[in-house]
Design a protein around this nucleic acid. Structure first.
Length: 435
RNA sequence: GACCCGUUCGUCUAUCGGUUAGGACUCCAGGUUUUCAUCCUGGCAAGAAGGGUUCGACUCCCUUACGGGUCGCCA
């Protein structure tokens, strides 16, 4: 039975690299009908706050990565004494393993701290991504014995991490490449405890566009920023999966379910990938195109309301007019404000350009024709443009630009037919006349 | 500095000894849409460098360069 885990420490935000680590572990577990565990490594008291822990849960939830075992989940099978997946609450377990190492004579005091005595031999790891990597522990200057228990009695990361992976019976540990050099240390610990280590897979890091390390303030670094930036979680999941992993096909747009089907550790790359925000936005657009109009309307609503725009009766029609035209949900309000209100901000440049267009002189004529007509529909309005244009020696296409600007106040926007239909006869005529 | 890992268009990537080195993002040019967008077509653009091995190397080996990671009583 496959068991994978994501073991973040609360730092105040969920890093996009951590999110991808979580995703790969989750995908691997789901693909093999295994168990995905969430474990909070909160041994650093200074950073361990409620808000910091919540950032992890919120990020995971938003991404759609549910865990089978972990905080707020039942079925804490592998946590015998404390039924907890917080390291801060597992001290008795660590104490027991500490005694084992002590009894095996693998520990010695250094001041009030305890160091683990490494076996002085070459350690070879068989990494599922990196292949065989050997670190020679005969070179003591390069690999000093490590402290596993501090002077204040607390345990360090390496020790608790190994004990937890052992106790929780993890079969696979998929983590960032920054842990590659830690792995032989962990292997030594497993061996000293007489336990079988899990299989390791170290995935390449995600870097900034300039190749530097991504930190909290860098664009795209914090998962918590994505929702308010107008991203769909499915798009973010899709995009980060593509950083360091490939489906080996020309397809790039996948849902979480499709990723489960296609994922494999063998297809993970070795070189670090750089974060491309532009492509991330493109992936988002592709996902917006895939969801239903209803879903899109629901997702966009908070952004529309945030701009104090009224949700009118024809909101559904309004929103579907721009569904194929935005990359981010944050672009929606500015794309539809002129349809929801009569005092939307106008694009001065487009207005000036339209007024300079000789065909704008035909707008009153068009308004009159529409006003005189007994019937009204988007099609009739479009035909009217053609008729007015023809009667005045112009082409319909030439008149459409002034009409568009008169009705929307900008050069780009929804299909003219949609604008006519949404605005209705009276408002269309009014805007044509007042331009 | 030492030790690890890596290096294909600007970016994400395909290629597992024989390809005109393919796709995607971005950008540019056409086309469709009587409008906007979508979309379609085309274009720009890559094997870090130098040595080997081989009939043949982006692919295997070595060296160098460059990039990343790690060297904590952080995780």
């Amino acid at each position: 039975m496959i068991r994978t885990r994501f073991a973040p420490s609360p730092t105040g935000y969920l890093h996009v690299g951590g999110a991808r680590t979580a995703l790969f572990n989750w995908l691997y577990a789901r693909k093999h009908k295994g168990t995905f565990v969430l474990r909070i490594e909160d041994t650093d008291a200074a950073r361990n706050t409620e808000a910091a822990r919540q950032a992890i849960f919120d990020g995971m939830s938003w991404l759609g990565l549910d865990w089978d075992e972990g905080p707020d989940r039942s079925g804490d099978l592998r946590s015998p004494s404390s039924s907890s997946y917080y390291q801060s609450q597992r001290k008795p377990i660590y104490d027991a393993y500490f005694e084992k190492l002590l009894a095996a004579d693998r520990l010695y005091k250094d001041g009030d701290a305890y160091r683990f005595r490494f076996d002085r031999k070459p350690i070879t790891m068989h990494d599922l991504v990196c292949g065989e990597v050997t670190i020679d522990y005969r070179d003591e200057s390069n690999t000093p014995d490590m402290v596993i228990k501090r002077s204040d009695g607390s345990y360090v990361f390496h020790f608790v991490n190994v004990v937890d992976d052992l106790e929780m019976e993890m079969t696979h540990v998929i983590r960032g490449e920054d842990h590659l050099m830690n792995t032989p240390k962990h292997l030594q610990l497993f061996e000293a405890l007489g336990a079988q280590p899990p299989q390791y897979a170290h995935i390449p890091l995600i870097l900034n566009p300039d190749g530097s390390k991504m930190s909290k303030r860098d664009v795209g670094a914090a998962v918590g920023d994505y929702p308010r930036q107008g991203f769909l979680s499915a798009a973010v999941v899709n995009f980060i999966a593509l950083l360091g992993w490939s489906s080996k096909s020309d397809d790039e747009i996948f849902t979480l379910i499709e990723l489960v089907d296609r994922f494999s550790l063998e297809a993970i790359n070795r070189a670090p990938a750089r974060f491309d925000f532009e492509k991330c936005k493109w992936v988002n657009q592709q996902h917006i195109a895939k969801i239903s109009k209803e879903t899109f309307a629901d997702l966009a609503k908070p952004f529309v309301e945030a701009e104090k725009l009224p949700i009118t009766e024809n909101y559904a029609a309004v929103i579907s007019a721009v569904k194929e035209k935005v990359r981010l949900l944050t672009e929606v309000p500015a794309a539809i404000d002129f349809l929801l209100t009569d005092n939307a901000q106008q694009d001065e440049e487009a207005v000036a350009k339209a007024k300079a267009n000789p065909n704008s002189a035909l707008l009153p004529t068009l308004a009159d024709q529409l006003a005189n007509g007994t019937e009204w529909s988007a099609e009739i309005a479009k035909e009217a443009i053609g008729e007015v244009a023809a009667a005045n020696g112009a082409k319909a296409g030439q008149l459409m630009f002034p009409v568009r600007v008169a009705l929307s106040g900008r050069a780009h926007g929804p299909d003219l037919g949609d604008i006519f239909a949404i605005l209705g006869k009276e408002r269309t005529i009014e805007r044509l006349r007042s331009f």
